[in-house]
Amino acid sequence: MGGDSSRYRRGMRAILIALLLMVPAVGHAELYRFENGAYLGAASLMPDWAGMLTRQQAEQGAFQRCLEDAQLCDKQYLGVRHVLHKARGLDSDKQIRLVNRYVNKRRYRRDRSASLDTPLSDGPQKYRSRWSTPGEFFKRGGDCEDFVTTKYFLLRELGFSADELRVVVTWDRQANGYHAILAVARTGGDVWLLESDNSIRRRRHHDYRFIYALNEDSVWDHENPAPAATQPATVSTPVALSTSTNDTAKETAPTEATL
C-alpha cells in the first residue's frame, strides 16, 4: 500500500515536471520589439500595401494644400487639419494619444474582397484585405488596417520618422482573428502599441502573436526568428507624409533567404 502511494506521488511529480517543461514550448509572452522582426524585403514587394503608398502620394498634394489653407480643404480633411494643427504644439506622448483617439472615432467598415495582380505571382490572386489611404479612410471609413495606416501617416506628418513606426499584423488572441496595430518606438527601447479600442499597450503585449510588420520602406517577418537578410540602409527623414517605396531597398532586397 505504502509503495503504491509513493509510486503515485512520484508519478504525479513527474507529470507536474513534464507540464512545467511544456510551458515555454506552448507559448511565451514577450514584449514587441522592432529588432525581433527579420527583414524580409522592400515594401514594394507587397502589392496592395505598395499600391496604397502610390495612391497616398497622389492625394498628398491636396492634403498639403488643405493644411496650408482651410478654404482649399476637401470636406473629409477639415477635422484632421484641425487635429494636426493643434497637435504640433504638443509633446510626442500627447501627439500619440491624440492621434490614436481621434482616428479611432472613425467609422469601422469591413473590406470587400479584392483581386489584384502581384509581381510575385504568375497570375491574379485573391486578397481580402485592402489597404486604404488616409484620404480614402476619412471619406468612407475602413477596417483595422486602415485605422492603423491613417495613424501611421498622421504621426509621420507630426514628425515621427518611418523608423519609429511599424504597422504590425498580429493574431489577436482576444479578438480571435487577424488584427493590425501600430507600433511606435519610444525612448529606452520601449514600444507602444496603439489599439483601435483606444488603449495604448505599453507592457501588455501578450494578447498578440506578431506575424509581420511594415513601414513605407520595408517588410519584417516576426514569425521567423533568424534574420533573413541584411536590411539595406534607409534614410528616413521626419518629413511628413512624403513617402516613397525605397528603391535602394528594392535593388538590394534578397531574392531568397533562409528564414
Binding site: L40, L45, D48, L120, H179, V219, L259
Partner: peptide, 24 residues
Amino acid sequence: VHTMDVKERMQNLELINVTAEKTA
C-alpha cells in the same frame, strides 16, 4: 516556415485577411 523563400513568404503574408473589429 524556415524552408520558405521570401517570395512564398510574402505571398502568404499578403493573403492574411486582417479584419478583427475592436470598437473604440
